[in-house]
Amino acid sequence: MLRQDSSAGSPKAANRLKNSPSPLLVMALRIGALIVFVGSWETASSLKWINPFFVSRPSDIIFRAYTWLSSGYVLSHTAITIVETFFAFVLGALLGAILAFLLYRSSIVDQALMPYLMILNAMPRIIFAPIFILWFGLGLTSKVVLGISIVIFIVFFSIYTGLKEVDQNLINKVRLMGGSEKDVLLEVLIPSALSWLFSSLKTSVGFALVGAIVGEYMGSANGLGHIIAFAEGMFDATGVFAGLFILSFVVIAINWCMERVENHFTAWRMG
C-alpha cells in the first residue's frame, strides 16, 4: 500500500512513487549483478567447471589489461584506433552531408542516384573489409575507408530526411525578410542539417569505430582490433577478453563525449 502525503495526492505522483525505486537500491542491484556474474565466472573457471583455456578468468583478464596499460603496449594501439575513427567519422559525415545537399537541391540527381544509394546501403559493408584492405593496404587508409563507407550513409539519410522536413514557411519567411538564397542556406538549411547530424552523432561515431575495429581485425599491424585478432591467433582467450574490455571503455568514453557535444549543440531542442 502507498502512504498518502500531500505531494503524492495525484494518481500520477502516486504512480511515480510506486514505479521508481530508490537510486541506492538500483545501484546496489547493479553492483550485485556484476558481483554474481563475475564471481560465478571466476569460481567456475578456477574450479575447472568450465575450461579456462577457452573462457579465461576475470582476474586474469583484468591483470592482463593492467599489464598492457602500464607497459604502454595498448595505448599506441588505442590511439591509432581513435585516429581512424576520427577520420572515418569526419570524412564520412562531410561526404554524406554534401551528398544529401546535392540530392536535396536537384531532384534529377535525387531520382537518378537514390536507387543506387539504397542498394549500396543495403550491402553489409563488413564484407568489403578484405577488398578495401586489398585496395588500400594494411595501413590506416583501408580502415578509414571502411568506416566512411558506413558513416556516409547514416549521415546522408539522416540529413536528407532532415532537409526534406525543413519548415518551408521558415524558408519563405527568411525570403520575405530580405534573405537571399545564401541566407536560406546559412540560416535555415545548414542549421537544420547540423541538428540532424548531431542527433545521429552517437550512431555514426559508433559505426566509424566499428569500421576501424573490423578493419584492424581483418588485417592490420596496429589498433585494438589487431590486438584482439592477434590474441585470437595465439589461442589466447585472456588476451581477446582483455582487448574487448579495453575496447568497451573506449566506446563508453567516446559515447560520453558525443553526448556532451550533442547536448551542447542541440540545447534548443530541450523542452
Binding site: 519567411k173 542549421p191 531542442r269
Partner: peptide
C-alpha cells in the same frame, strides 16, 4: 507574413 505554424528558428 505571419503563418499559422509560427515558422520560428528553433535553434
Amino acid at each position: 507574413i505571419v503563418f499559422q505554424e509560427f515558422a520560428l528558428f528553433p535553434w
